[in-house]
C-alpha cells in the first residue's frame, strides 16, 4: 500500500520525525544537565558521578544488543526448525 507524503499520518511524516528527534535530544540533554541542580546520591561512589545514569544506561544497552547479536549467530534457527 503506497501513500503520498501528504496523506501519510502526521506522526510518520519525515518532518514530524525530525522534530521528535530534536525534542528527544533536548530532553536527553536536560536530564543530564538537571544533575547540576538536583544531586543524585551516589550509594557506591560512581553512581553519583555527573551523567553516570545516562552513560551507564546507554553503554549497558549497547553491550546487551551486541551480546544478543553474537549469541544470535549461534542460537538463531529458521522458525520452522522444530516443525515435524
Amino acid at each position: 500500500m503506497s501513500h503520498s507524503p501528504n496523506k501519510e499520518h502526521w506522526l510518520v511524516r519525515p518532518r514530524t520525525i525530525r522534530w521528535l528527534w530534536i525534542v528527544f535530544s533536548g530532553v536527553l540533554a536536560l536530564t543530564v544537565l538537571m544533575q547540576i541542580v538536583i544531586k543524585v546520591k551516589g550509594y557506591f561512589g560512581v553512581d553519583g558521578w555527573f551523567g553516570f545514569g545516562a552513560a551507564f544506561g546507554f553503554l549497558v544497552c549497547v553491550a546487551m544488543v551486541l551480546v544478543a547479536k553474537v549469541l544470535g549467530r549461534f542460537l538463531k534457527r529458521d522458525e520452522h526448525f522444530y516443525d515435524d
Binding site: 545516562a54 551507564f56 544488543v65 526448525f81
Partner: peptide, 28 residues
C-alpha cells in the same frame, strides 16, 4: 533523575541500534 537518565539513554541506544535489531524470521 537517575532512573530518567538510565531509561531515556537506553531509549537512545535502542533507536541508534535499530538496524542491528532488524527482525528476522527465526527462533532462538
Amino acid at each position: 533523575l537517575f532512573y530518567l537518565q538510565l531509561l531515556l539513554f537506553s531509549g537512545l541506544a535502542f533507536f541508534l541500534l535499530l538496524p542491528a535489531m532488524k527482525r528476522t524470521l527465526t527462533i532462538t
